[in-house]
Amino acid sequence: MLKNKYILFACCCLLTYCLQAQSGWTREAKGLYVQASIMNFSSNDYYTTEGRLADQGSDFNTSGLLIYGEYGVTDRLTAVLDLPLVRLNSFSTTETVGGVGNIQLGAKYKLLKSFPLSLQVALDIPTNDGTNFAQSKEPNAFGEFDVINLPVSDGEFNVWTTLAASHGFKNGKTYASAFSSVNFRTEDFSNQFQAGVEVGHLFFDKLYLIGKLKIQERLSSENNVQSGSFLFGEGTTFTSFGFTSMYKLSDHFNLVAQYSDYAGFLVDRKNVYDGGTFSLGLAFEL
């Protein structure tokens, strides 16, 4: 029973900037999970909307403080909150601007009593209109300071619908999950499709090591890509992979560290900066 609880914990709670875990399990009634994480990303390797690698000449940097929570309303229904409480964006040639990222509120429902298959619907709520201008550190040739939009919110509502299934193996220490998800976007943005898998194993009854793989595709027949910051995610496609370590500090507290990165072996990288994201978090479970 204890090992199964570890598996449920590992599958339900993980969250990072690039790779969000999805599983077929829900939390037990009145069960609570809260995680606070800091993350950092830096890169100057930008893949254009045509998939061409273009060195931008300056690094793009983003960091933040992320809050993630789950609460078991019933044994089959879990409420989910994803709150980028602080998001900081900059180029190496600009000042840093910040704000609160899109707030995601969701509900996950376990469809079958005998098998961990869940359906989750989550609403992404914008926190601003998608404008957040950063000024250059140095003046241009005309003696003026340039500005660039580095939004922390895409300024539009999204509805994520996710179907996920999981399986815990008989040894009580290993699990696997798979999911598919569609993001229905507004404001003339293209809808998005994601799918992914993850596998985790418990070592020494305290340390979970987890590997993940995810793809994102654009769901649209139009060839045009809406102009604007790459941070809006319009026309963005990729393959991403990640590794998570989760160490049990006590009965209620856990230390979570994660690395994620992009690749192009399944889906081409388009309209995305390519590089690794690091995150470190502290989780509380009740």
Rank of each mutant, 00 (worst) to 15 (best):
Y6F: 15
C12R: 11
L14R: 13
L15Q: 08
L15K: 13
T16M: 04
C18P: 01
Q22A: 14
S23H: 07
W25Y: 15
W25T: 02
W25C: 00
T26N: 02
E28H: 02
K30F: 05
Y33W: 01
I38G: 14
I38Q: 02
N40R: 12
N40K: 10
N40L: 10
S43I: 03
S43K: 12
Y46A: 09
Y46H: 12
Y46L: 05
L53E: 11
G57E: 04
D59E: 13
D59P: 00
T62S: 15
S63F: 03
L65W: 12
L65P: 07
L66H: 09
Y68G: 07
Y68A: 13
G69C: 03
G69K: 02
Y71A: 05
V73G: 00
T74H: 05
L77G: 01
T78P: 03
V80H: 04
D82Y: 12
P84W: 05
L85Y: 12
V86P: 00
V86C: 00
N89R: 10
F91I: 01
S92Y: 12
S92H: 03
T96H: 05
V97T: 01
V97D: 04
N102Q: 06
L105A: 11
Y109R: 08
K110P: 02
L111K: 01
P116T: 01
P116N: 10
P116S: 03
P116C: 11
S118L: 13
L123I: 15
N128C: 10
G130D: 01
K137V: 10
P139R: 05
N140I: 03
A141Y: 11
F142C: 05
G143E: 07
G143F: 10
E144H: 14
F145A: 09
V147W: 10
I148K: 04
N149D: 15
P151Q: 09
D154H: 08
F157Y: 14
N158R: 12
V159C: 14
W160Y: 13
T162Y: 08
T174S: 14
F179G: 03
S180W: 02
S181H: 00
S181I: 01
E187C: 10
N191Q: 02
F193A: 03
V197L: 14
E198G: 02
E198T: 08
G200R: 11
H201C: 04
D205V: 02
K206T: 11
K206F: 00
L207Y: 04
Y208K: 02
I210C: 08
L219F: 02
E222K: 15
V225A: 05
F230L: 04
G235C: 07
F241T: 12
G242T: 05
F243A: 14
T244C: 11
T244M: 06
S245N: 08
K248I: 01
N254A: 01
N254H: 06
N254Q: 09
L255A: 10
V256D: 07
Q258I: 00
G264V: 04
K270A: 06
V272Q: 13
G276Q: 06
G276N: 13
G276Y: 10
S279L: 07
L280N: 06
A283T: 09
E285M: 08
